[in-house]
Amino acid sequence: MRDFDWKILMTLYNTKNITRTANLMFITQPTLTRRLQQLELELDTTLLIRGSKGIVFTPNGEYVVQKAAEILRALDEIKDHIEQSEHGSRGTLKIGVPNSFMHFVIPALVEKFSEKFPQIKLELHTDLSSQLIKSLEAHELHACFARGNINTPLKKHLLSEDQITIISHRPITLEDLPNLPQIEYAKEETVVNATAKWWNENFDTPPNIKLKVNSGEACLQMIKHKLGYGIFSDIKYFDPKDGLFSLPLTFKDGSKFTRKSWLVYNENALHYPLISNFVTSVLESY
C-alpha cells in the first residue's frame, strides 16, 4: 500500500462520502472506487459497506483506519525530524492555544515568529488548557500555552499572572453581585473551582446565573447589550473604549485573585531546533 492509500482511507473515514472524498483527494470517483476495491483485494477483507445513509466501515475497516492514522502520523514525524535537522528553519509546528490566547496574544507572537522563520508552518489547535496539556503529553502537539494551575511533568515557563476581573456595563460593587444577573462562560475546572471559593468567601447565596455561553468573547458581547456582568480570567477582555467598567477581585486576606499563563513543552524536545526556536522566540517576547 502507498501513502496515498492511507490518506484515502482516512479521508473517507472522516467524510463517509465517496464523492466528497474523491474531490478532496483530487481524483475521479471511478478511480477512487477502483482503488478501494484493489485495497480490499490486497488485504483480503471487506473494509466498508455502502448503504443508503452513506459509508459504514466494517470492524476490519475500522482497524485498518486506526493503523492508517498511526502510519501517517509516523510519516509526518519522520518528515518533521528531517526538516527540523535543517537548523529548525523549515517544518511544521503544532501549537495548542487557549481561546483567550488565540484572540489576544497569538497574533502578535505569530507575526514576530513568522518574520524570523517564514518557512515554518504553524498549526494552531484551540481548546481548554486541560485538554491541550493532555494532547501535548500524548505527543500530538509540539508545545502549548495553558492557563491556570496545571499539573504536568512537562517543562513549563510562567509567562504572566493576570488578576481575575469583573466586567459590567455599569459601575457595580461587590455587595451588588448576588442581586445582579451573571453571564457565565466556559472556563478551566481550576478557575471554576477558584471562582467558587472566592464567591463562597464573600457571599452566603449562590450567583444569579442568567446566561451561559461558550467563550469570553461571547460573554463580552452579552455584557455590551446590558444582559449582566461577567467574571473574566484575562484583563485583556477589558477595553475602556467599550464604555464598560471593571472590578479587580481580591480574597478576604487582601491577596489578588489571579490566574497564571504558561508555555508548556517537553524539555527533551528542545534538541529539535524547530521546537527550540519557537520556545526561545516566545520567551523573548515575554
Rank of each mutant, 00 (worst) to 15 (best):
F203Y: 14
H142N: 09
N268W: 00
E201H: 07
P171D: 07
E137S: 09
V105G: 07
L227Y: 05
R35M: 13
A74R: 04
I82E: 12
G54C: 07
S255D: 10
P181W: 00
V110Y: 02
G243F: 11
I18Q: 12
F101Q: 07
L124I: 12
T31H: 13
H169Q: 08
N179Y: 11
F232T: 10
S261Q: 01
G51Y: 02
S246T: 05
T15G: 14
C219K: 04
H103W: 07
R90N: 09
L36G: 03
F113M: 10
T33V: 13
D204K: 05
E284G: 03
H139N: 12
I172C: 15
K53C: 11
N151G: 08
F232S: 10
N17H: 14
K187V: 00
N200T: 10
M10P: 02
Q119C: 02
I71T: 10
P178M: 03
M1C: 07
S129F: 01
K236V: 10
V64S: 13
L24A: 06
I164Q: 06
E111Q: 11
S255K: 03
I150G: 07
V56R: 14
G228Q: 05
D234C: 04
L270W: 04
G228I: 08
K197D: 08
F245V: 08
S129Q: 10
E161K: 08
Q182E: 03
G148S: 08
P273W: 00
T258Y: 01
C144S: 15
H81T: 09
F4L: 15
L220R: 14
K224H: 04
A143K: 06
K197R: 09
